[in-house]
Simulated scan of single mutants.
Amino acid sequence: MKAILRTMGGWSQRAPTCCAVVMKHAVLWCAAMLFAALIPVVHAVAADTSLTPEASAAKMAAEHLMTAKIEWRGPSSSPKPLAGKRIAIVSCCEAADGAARASRAMVEAGKTLGWQVNVLDGRGDPQEQNKALNSAIDAKYDGIVLEFVDTTTVSDGVARALKAKIPLITLGTLRNTPDTIPDVSWDYAKHGEALANYMIWKSNGNVNALILLNTDLYVTRNGQWVGTKNVLTDPKKCKDCKVTVKEWPMANIDTQPGSIATAALQANPKINWGWCFDACMSRVSRALIASGLSSKMRGAGFDCNAESLQLIKDGQVEAVCAADPREWDAYAVIDNLNRLMQGQPTVNQGIPVRLFDKTNISTLSDYEMSHGWQGGYDFRAAYRKLWGMQK
């Protein structure tokens, strides 16, 4: 600045008033800009320091899953797909959008390969699921997918499929019996941990959570719920957290979760969070809205289906969801099933996960808002390239 002033001094004698005015305005402008720039910093620091140390740690953990970079971590090669295969998908319950999304995408992926893919709806009933599996075996399908179906509840059909040497693979079951049956999964416990951390962060450690735990899905009980429970029941992470668990069967998904949540909230107004997968949480949200209780509880879900994403955007009960790209999961199943049918081992498909709330939901495309998160990567093109079917 001194050098500039000296240079200006050469002509300032002719117009000292002008120079002084210009410099005065420049200094004032710089000061104003500096003050404006500091305002959000001051506010941010104030917001952070208002959190307990536990809530601050939870905030950091949750935000990581909201911003982590998405890259292709799937396979780098795949055997050339066999043409003309017939595949049966035994779905746990097509009324649940999380299952229906995967089913539709497997049909789509199969069509790309020239396969005939049929969906058999298990209707949320283990007996119906076992019946569907046995019918697929009787029809001599070339491969069978169990979608969110616990292998222990359909053990009769599983034994028949293995005896018939029909390639069998699961989607989203976490653990299979026998454990030689491959599964396509992602980090379920990480989903649960992220939701717990989000609740702690947003409630500053004062979480009173209603857990709506499905009795049929092994993966929910031993995946997401384990992750959430390990955080919420750890006094080092949340000394004041309270948890109430209510169980319900998949066959009652359309009515029971909503009625349980409504009754629980009326009996205990201190409940401030509800937790379950999105096909359940969307029904809970509808029930609470209809009962005039939508402002009394926030929802934490997982799957990030289209209805839940809209509820989050609109600020209607559900506040956050943990996402896996369900269509990506489906393509991964088809890729591994192709390997199985050619006598090759399955591979880790590197499926990503993400956390969405009202602050980052704007990063989703219109297509994702109506179909669910797609993973932030063109996985369809990646699989077509793997299969040698680039357009």
Rank of each mutant, 00 (worst) to 15 (best):
M341R: 05
A132V: 15
Q390I: 07
V22H: 08
A68S: 02
G223A: 01
G172C: 04
W11Y: 15
A161D: 03
A306P: 10
A290Y: 12
E128T: 10
D121R: 10
A139M: 09
F277C: 12
R175W: 07
I271P: 00
I39M: 12
I89S: 01
E318W: 07
A62S: 11
W373R: 01
D329C: 11
S291T: 07
S291V: 04
T170W: 00
R326N: 07
K391P: 07
R6T: 09
N134V: 08
H25I: 05
T177S: 02
I271F: 05
N118E: 09
V27D: 15
D142C: 10
K163I: 06
V184N: 00
D142K: 01
T262W: 11
L195A: 07
D324E: 12
L195T: 00
G258K: 04
H25R: 13
G375Y: 02
I166W: 01
Q342T: 06
L213H: 03
E147Q: 10
V22R: 07
N118Q: 02
K313P: 00
D183T: 11
D314W: 04
A323V: 08
T228L: 11
A20H: 06
G110P: 15
T152G: 03
A261D: 00
W275E: 07
K229N: 14
P40Q: 13
C30G: 03
K2P: 05
C30H: 12
N252K: 03
E147G: 09
A264N: 03
E318Q: 03
T7E: 13
L171T: 00
A264C: 08
M369K: 15
Q310L: 04
K229M: 07
P352T: 00
F148V: 07
A83G: 05
R6L: 10
A55S: 14
F35C: 14
K239P: 07
R6A: 09
G172M: 01
V347D: 12
A382I: 00
M23F: 11
T170M: 00
G388M: 06
A44I: 03
T153A: 08
S362H: 14
L34G: 08
K236Y: 09
S294P: 03
D150W: 01
W328Q: 06
W275C: 03
S362F: 09
A251D: 15
M199P: 06
A164T: 12
D156T: 09
N336K: 02
K202T: 08
E54Q: 11
N130A: 07
A251Y: 14
G301Y: 04
L210V: 09
Q390M: 09
D138G: 13
K69W: 04
A20C: 08
Y367E: 10
T255I: 11
I87R: 01
Q116A: 10
P345M: 02
G124E: 14
S203Q: 15
Q349Y: 04
